[in-house]
Design a protein around this nucleic acid. Structure first.
Lengths: 326, 326
DNA sequence: TTGAAAGCGATACCAT
DNA sequence: ATGGTATCGCTTTCAA
């Protein structure tokens, strides 16, 4: 059995209250007493129980983060940014991946009971679940998700970047565009789709529900078979675009001459594939959310806060023969 | 204030013991009583406190995982595999990134106090810290790290794969090899270096301590400036290799004709860059560790266990003009 | 400066 | 089948 506060108290010949004071080097304890306690603690290799402390203080000193998946750099980077700031603020981090989990709702509620606040990424759980938790007093920050009630949120700019991306394509001579991705799936994609529609006259939608390379490959395949290639494939994310791009190049289609391809996120592979895309400040998304959550937990703020982070158009050879921007 | 077990007991006109029984749908409770309790719980929107429960049961139902960093797919995938299995086993997951953290030791100890067991990835913390925790009764599984004491471990095969990789290079005509990476940095790299040395007659070492693309770029730069190119750069990981490869190609060096390049890990970008590499079962590393940890936590096993997972040589156009293997 | 004792919110043993 | 109560390990008044 691990030593408890009582063992230390007995060993040092003081009360548990005094031990507690020393361990949190808080109050006023006479130096001599403090020394005795510390000695006893050291001898017994005593470390205060987090559970006991948490229960008494009624706080967890832990934050949660819910995401669909960690494959692909996007979510991983966000989580990393989150963890870094949370740690800085002295908080532990709990993670929960909802992907392929039937009982995601239950898992999120469970997580909520283990931390002082949490952030959710994308459309991981139903609004109703989030709302119920918020009503119970849970502190919540949303990332990449439209506002729910008066909850805080952090998002990367989508609409205007999509407009800029589309205008670039048009400037490069593309007329018939084809958007690949499902706007109903996430708000991010919906906003990108809206931006593309706004800037382009001739754009059609291929609503694929998956966002992996395979899905992109299939889209390109279908287009090749039908002999119906647009001037540009505007993909909802990089992985889709990489799939499309790979298939087109393999089929001998000239990119960007004949067909142009764009992605979104700027994952590492995008650079090697020469893929034009939009770079998101992934770590910053997580870091910002962590800071906002901390404000909520400490009741530093009453007004809801909504952050919109900037993105950056990255032009590469999948759309342009001119000098690449990076 | 959130309702407690006492509120529900009062509301339902029963004792807290009965409420507890109902909430864990354990023991024998008369259907009528159970219904009354459930109704009261529902009305009050009662959810048992994890803290109270954990303290009473003296278990956390949570696992930890310590890693250096989540950037790059390697660690992210391992964490994901770990989380998936842990969740399946009904356990929450705490994460801790030690990268750029001065007080990593403290953070790990703190984490140990918050979970029933943890796994550490690579050389995140000193052996001494791990040993101290183990002595205190912490359940620990090591990933990608040589055994400490009689602690469980999971590793990916390195030595033999390095031999195979080297033999492939030699078969392709490479004679003068140059290994890029620091064997002193991690056991993984040390084993790869040993394998390469065993299979090659002529191999020199460039000990770079960083493992990013930039470091690779610098290595290639230095070699180009000195006009001293080997037949092949054997890099400790893909990111280094991608840096080398990019720089060489930019300089007009013919790859694989003039110089060959290999990496390790098979990250997504490797495929697009046509990089020959060794694929590791990243998720499987995490998943296996999670299962082993669960055995430890449940005392299902007394003998230490050491798993060695298989890797796969992936040949691409950075070393060979023949048909690629994937 | 220190100690006694009342929580914190549950579980679980022992009666009834 | 239920209830009373000690217990888990700590924090935090309130007195002394």
């Amino acid at each position: 059995m691990l030593p408890t506060i009582r063992d230390v108290a007995r060993e040092a010949g003081v009360s548990i209250a005094t031990v507690s004071r020393v361990m949190r080097d808080s109050d006023t304890v006479r130096p001599a007493t403090r020394a005795r306690v510390l000695l006893a603690a050291q001898e017994l290799e005593y470390i205060p129980s987090q559970l006991g402390r948490q229960l008494a203080e009624r706080r967890h000193a832990a934050n949660g983060i819910v995401f669909p998946d960690l494959s692909g750099p996007y979510f991983a980077e966000v989580v990393l940014g989150y963890e870094a700031v949370a740690a800085e603020l002295g908080r532990s981090v709990l993670i929960l991946s909802t992907n392929g989990r039937a009982d995601a709702d239950v898992a999120v509620r469970e997580m909520a009971g283990r931390c002082d606040g949490l952030v959710t990424l994308g459309r991981t759980v139903d609004d109703s679940v989030i709302e119920a938790l918020a009503k119970r007093g849970a502190r919540i920050v949303l990332i990449a998700r439209p506002p729910i009630g008066s909850l805080d949120s952090v998002n990367a700019e989508n609409h205007d970047s999509a407009v800029a991306l589309t205008e670039h394509l048009i400037a490069e001579g593309a007329r018939r565009l084809r958007f690949v991705g499902d706007p109903d799936l996430t708000a991010d994609v919906a906003e990108r789709w809206a931006g593309v529609q706004k800037a382009a006259d001739d754009v059609e939608l291929v609503a694929v529900t998956e966002l992996g390379e395979d899905a992109g490959t299939r889209v390109a395949d279908a287009a090749l078979e039908r002999g119906d290639l647009p001037d540009a494939f505007v993909c909802a994310n990089d992985e889709l675009a990489l799939g499309v791009l790979g298939r087109l190049r393999a089929a001998g289609v000239e990119v960007p001459g004949q067909v142009k391809v764009t992605g979104w996120d700027d994952v590492m592979a995008a650079r090697y594939a020469g893929l034009t895309t939009v770079r998101q400040p992934m770590r910053e998304l997580g870091a910002t959310a962590a800071r906002m959550l901390d404000e909520l937990i400490h009741d530093t703020r009453t007004e809801p806060r909504h952050e919109l982070l900037h993105t950056e158009l990255v032009i590469r050879r999948s759309t342009s023969r001119k000098k690449e921007s990076s």
